[in-house]
Design a protein around this nucleic acid. Sequence first.
DNA 1: GTCTATACTACGATAGAC
DNA 2: GTCTATCGTAGTATAGAC
Lengths: 218, 218
Amino acid sequence: MTKPEPNLAAEIDPVRKRILDAAVVQFSDRGYEGASTRAIAQVAGAAMSSITYQFGGKHGLYLATADHIGDQIAGFMHPRLDAARTAVRNGTLPHVEAVLMILGGMAEMMLDDRSQKWAGFIVREQQEPGEAFDRLYEQVMEPMAELMIELIGVARPDLSGKRLRAIAMSLVGQVIALRAARAAMLRILDIEKLDAAERNLLREALQANVRAVLEMKG
Amino acid sequence: MTKPEPNLAAEIDPVRKRILDAAVVQFSDRGYEGASTRAIAQVAGAAMSSITYQFGGKHGLYLATADHIGDQIAGFMHPRLDAARTAVRNGTLPHVEAVLMILGGMAEMMLDDRSQKWAGFIVREQQEPGEAFDRLYEQVMEPMAELMIELIGVARPDLSGKRLRAIAMSLVGQVIALRAARAAMLRILDIEKLDAAERNLLREALQANVRAVLEMKG
DNA sequence: GTCTATACTACGATAGAC
DNA sequence: GTCTATCGTAGTATAGAC
């Protein structure tokens, strides 16, 4: 051990990561213009100028934040996509069940408290998409959407092309709304906060609706 | 005609309304903190201090903007809700068709270019709801949701209570996502911009899915 | 009721010490 | 690589003329 002992705290949670974690929350809550690099640096316990050094400025930090969010979503979803794809190709999982597995995983994420951190970032980018949206779409949304479309196309051979894609969008929309319309959802369910019972209810409703659509007589 | 002729342009489009129209776009695009009263006043062709005079400050303007958006949505949706309610009570419209009429009206609004102006405002409020969300919910979302729940409850007598509400939320979610996840939707459909053909496709997909759920054997 | 002018605070970026 | 100090700009609010 001739090398000097590194600062452990910094090693485990380096400035770059602390800044990104703070940026996710600030950009999500206040938007690009509303979030301040001062506040982000302060929450991260770093100097404002570290943002310039690490990311080249506010805009660079914003793009890096999109990638950071994408990493978190991909870390959860990609294993599930791979499992569904593999099981279907092995013939051990019916196509409808694979769709339910993917949408169920997505719903689990949308219903989890941890997705609140980044939800604001994504819904803002959906309204006025820029380079940050491109990165998020390619990293996490596209692989999910294309697999879903493939599976639904087998379950519903009466559909193809844009009709198939429109049906897929509609089904995924039910899951997206669990986050994007969270406040309205809570009011409709007449609750203050989601607990396990309501999470199950929403997952069951989603499952029932998706089955009704996919097992429908074309 | 002894009274002095009023300024016609100001009468038709008074400062207050011009400020509100500008505020909808600015708050929608940049969020509360990101939108500046300077920019709003400039777009409205008014002095910044008119905002203080008319609305008491930035926060007051924000709340008035929520009401202004609510007025526009209510102007479109309330006649449709009334028509659906009346026709169902007269027995001239089946419950399932009434649900489709309401969701179809909502989809028409979400797919119309004009709803882009205020969509950002609402999705932001959904993520971090405040007084502005309360006003929007009570003015336009609640009447729509409660009528939908009543109608779905008749079409699907096997459902009640929170199960019924969860199914209703899931169905409405398909429509909400047409705006809230607009950028992803365009990518999934592989288009740059919605035209009449895709609007119809999305409306048909919605209709088919809702029918599959409501006409399902409980 | 609407304007101009101004006070005060907070923003992003950067220079330079360590 | 991270810090402190500082520059120029843009934010909200308000006072006071008309």
